[in-house]
């Protein structure tokens, strides 16, 4: 059987809110090392990769590798019934066709049990090679969310450029154009408010803003976001999940004709 008990149940709630509108049905791959998920959106332009390590769970047991086929909208509906401070336990039998979610209130005075049917999803996984990216920018996640939202009101594609100065976001549309530059900034009190740029090669790529907007639904997961770019490769937008793993979004670039 598989069982995972997560003291910070809100993390799982936030993960579902971040991916339920991008991916419809996917397998949660459970093994003794934790829970992993890899899925593309319906247009195969974006890819989501989630890792929740077993060590991040208060209790974790997985006797046999299980691929739990789940409709994310339905799982989100059930997780919405959990309180933000609830402990969430996921459970599934090896030969079962359901998954159960148990929510325990902080002082254990309310225990909820939800059971959801599993689906048979034969998903193929893509091999994502380890890459030494030409540019890696870490910045406040709320800042990135704000920039993407603001640019989306002006245009539908963004040119993201990274130089040693910093990272720039540009767009244009019917009403005009916009360009936002965030400089490297390490002289702030809290580390999480820093913007750091690790650059090996200046790089500039073009992306559809509606996907970047969708990725920023994960902002609640981490105060920082890391953007990794390399010429002619998908951008990686990564939200680290403290002590557990990460939620990564890959977005294929738009190639000039």
């Amino acid at each position: 059987m598989f069982e995972g008990r997560l003291l910070q149940g809100s993390l799982l709630k936030k993960v579902l809110e971040a991916i339920k509108d991008l991916v419809t049905d996917t397998n949660f791959d459970c093994s003794e090392t934790g829970i992993a998920l890899q899925a593309m959106d319906s247009s195969h332009v974006a890819l989501v990769s989630l890792l929740l390590k077993d060590t991040g769970f208060d209790h974790f047991r997985c006797d046999r590798n299980l691929a739990l086929g789940i409709n994310l909208q339905n799982m989100s509906k059930m997780l919405k019934c959990a309180g933000n401070d609830d402990i969430i336990t996921l459970k599934a039998e090896d030969e079962g066709d359901t998954i159960t979610f148990m929510f325990e209130s902080p002082n254990q005075d309310k225990i909820s049990d939800f059971e959801m049917k599993l689906m048979d999803i034969d998903s193929e996984h893509l091999g994502i090679p380890d890459t030494d990216y030409q540019a890696i920018v870490t910045m406040p996640s709320a800042e990135f969310q704000r920039i993407v939202r603001d640019l989306s009101s002006i245009g539908d594609t963004a040119v993201i450029g990274v130089t040693k100065e910093g990272i720039s976001f540009s767009t244009g549309g019917d009403i005009g154009k916009a360009n936002i530059v965030c400089r490297q900034n390490t002289n702030v009190d809290k580390e999480e408010d820093q913007t750091t740029v690790e650059i090996h090669e200046p790089v500039s790529l073009t992306f559809a803003l509606r996907y970047l907007n969708s990725f920023t639904k994960a902002t609640a997961l981490s105060p920082q976001v890391t953007l990794s770019l390399s010429k002619e490769l998908p951008i990686v937008v990564e939200y680290k999940i403290e002590k557990m793993g990460f939620l990564r979004f890959y977005l294929a670039p738009k190639i000039e004709e």
Binding site: M40, S43, L47, T157, P234, K254
Partner: peptide, 14 residues
């Protein structure tokens, strides 16, 4: 700007 590429251009099925 430009033509949207697909994920399968960059990452191959395992």
């Amino acid at each position: 700007g430009g033509k949207q590429s697909l994920m399968s251009t960059f990452f191959k099925p395992k």
